[in-house]
Simulated assay, not measured.
Amino acid sequence: MQLEMPGMPRRLFPATPSKLAAFADCPRRYRFAYVDRPTPPKGPPWAHNTVGSAVHAALRSWWELPRDRRTAAAARQLLYGVWSDTGFRDAEQSASWRARAAGWLTDYVPTLHPDDEPVGTERQVAATTAALAVSGRVDRIDQRGDELVVVDYKTGRVPSTEDEARGSPALALYVLGVQRTLRRPCRRVELHHLPSGTVAAFEHTERSLANHVRRAEDIAADIAVATQRVEDGASPDEAFPTAPGRQCGWCDFRPSCPTGQAATPVRETWSSLPADDDAVV
């Protein structure tokens, strides 16, 4: 670790929401992703990630179309163009889910006014705190009156809730990033759950944002301590312990983690997709 010179500003910890979440979920996963070089091999890709990536890409490209081409049919075609069979059981399952995702877009796109140009789509934003240099990419930034709104697309099996919007560290850090990068008021965050057609929202306050920043800085401090322990000669396994649980079943680094393998049975790469008879998909 490079020592700080007396009188020099404190070095900020470079953080992204996913980086902080990795350590909070499991320090060992953080180590595998951000510390070990070369990075340990990952397991196979997951079908639910394929679905989410395709929907996100289609919506980003939809807003890039000329105004008169922003239709539900265009959104479906954009989805078909980026669709992949990666992670699915077979081509039949992939085709079924492509049709399902296309249906989500068919229902969602008409709720968007083509003239309401977002301030940004897949926009990179950044901010600094007393201890962090935070950056991240926002799915969509809307203009609502005099304020900006952070919009995050969700494609999971369970509809989003206000508690999820309020408690999301990523969304809170995106608000800070939008405020600092675009220098305009931003407090509201929205989770747009396409499968159910619902929106969960929360209006942040200075206090709620400060709480999120404090927790993020605490995680960064724990990362710094673990990293320093390794540099001082501690075992990496001791400095970055595992946090075994259900999440081990879908961890990308499961093949490199005996503890995670023992914690949960191996899962099929399509197992996180809702069953066809689920009420909400």
Rank of each mutant, 00 (worst) to 15 (best):
G87V: 08
G52L: 03
A91R: 13
W83P: 04
P44M: 11
D68W: 10
F23E: 01
A57L: 14
W83C: 09
S61D: 08
L59P: 03
A74H: 12
R28I: 04
G52T: 02
W97T: 07
D85G: 14
E92K: 12
F23Q: 06
Q77C: 11
R60F: 06
W46D: 04
L78M: 09
D25P: 01
L79C: 07
P45M: 08
P45R: 11
C26T: 00
V82C: 14
T50K: 12
D25W: 05
A57N: 09
R76P: 01
R29V: 03
W63R: 10
W46F: 15
R31S: 11
W63Q: 07
W83T: 01
G52H: 08
C26H: 00
A72E: 13
G87D: 06
D25N: 15
Y34V: 00
P66D: 02
A73C: 10
S96F: 14
K42P: 02
A72C: 07
Y34I: 05
S94Y: 13
V35P: 06
V51I: 13
A24T: 00
T71W: 04
L65Q: 15
W62P: 01
R67H: 11
A73G: 13
A58L: 10
L79M: 03
F88C: 07
R70W: 11
C26A: 05
R60A: 11
A95S: 13
Y30M: 01
D68K: 02
Y34C: 02
P38K: 10
G43F: 09
V51T: 07
S84A: 13
C26R: 00
A24C: 04
G43N: 09
Q77W: 11
R76V: 15
D85R: 11
A95H: 14
V82T: 12
G87K: 06
R69S: 13
E64T: 08
F88Y: 14
R29Q: 06
P41Q: 14
F32C: 01
H56W: 05
S84G: 09
D85V: 12
